[in-house]
Design a protein around this nucleic acid. Structure first.
Length: 218
DNA sequence: AACTCGGGGCA
DNA sequence: TGCCCAGAGTT
């Protein structure tokens, strides 16, 4: 398992590789971010941004989403994966915001996770990005990178990965660390055929050493 | 823990 | 055209 110092080294190197790592979803307020993140499940941020660019001109508030027929909302987000269920969830979610939270987005993890279409990852992104609350959103990139590097164990659940990261990374850095790991995972430490030979983290990466064994010249 | 849901992007 | 990518919810 990597030490805190080794993890810091990793995060610093990721910062050099991706100095502009940040949340890529378009949003101007917590409500729009919540919608954007719910739409982003199992979908790339680029696809979501294509949809929200026009969506947010038409729908400004929770009321706007529930006064239209479900079919209309579904058509408006048709180009992303799982759009039928996502439209249903957004209407249910908007009703809950109006009925229970005076139309505002709640801030607690528990309240967010009770909303339909909002799981742990989505709730943590909203807390971190919209409200500036320290949170570690573990998506597939963060999970893969953590496991390959050796920050956590291969068999760890998503929750265990999150707990380990929160324990080993200073709280003030959770937000930037999670964005760096996402960029690192998406563009460099890819799921398929990662370029370990050209990775600045190879010297301490558990998986990288295994993968490059016998491949290195000399 | 395994399965389902359903698009876009890329080879 | 077929393979890979990205989470939540249900059993």
């Amino acid at each position: 398992m990597l030490t805190k110092k080794e993890i810091r080294f990793c995060l610093d190197e990721m910062g050099k590789m991706f100095p502009n790592a940040h949340c890529e979803l378009i949003h101007r307020n917590p409500f729009e971010l919540l919608i954007a993140v719910v739409l982003s499940a199992q979908t790339t941020d680029a696809s979501v941004n294509k949809v929200t660019k026009t969506l947010f001109q038409k729908y400004k508030s929770p009321q706007d989403y529930i006064v239209v027929p479900l079919e209309e909302l579904q058509q408006d987000i048709r180009s992303i994966g799982l759009y039928r269920t996502k439209a249903k969830n957004i209407q249910k979610l908007c009703k809950i915001l109006l009925e229970q939270y005076n139309g505002q987005v709640p801030k607690s993890l528990e309240q967010l996770m009770e909303l339909p279409g909002v799981g742990r990852k989505t709730a943590n992104v909203v807390r971190s990005v919209a409200f500036g609350i320290p949170a570690f959103a573990v998506d597939t990139h963060v999970e893969r990178v953590s496991k390959r590097l050796g920050i956590c164990r291969w068999k760890d659940s998503v929750l265990e990965v999150e707990m380990t990261l929160m324990k080993k990374v200073p709280k003030e850095e959770w937000s930037i660390a999670h964005h760096r790991m996402i960029f690192f995972g998406r563009y460099h430490c890819k799921a398929q055929n990662p370029d370990c030979l050209n990775c600045p983290l190879l010297s301490i990466c558990r998986e990288g050493k295994k993968r490059t064994k016998g491949l290195k010249e000399n």
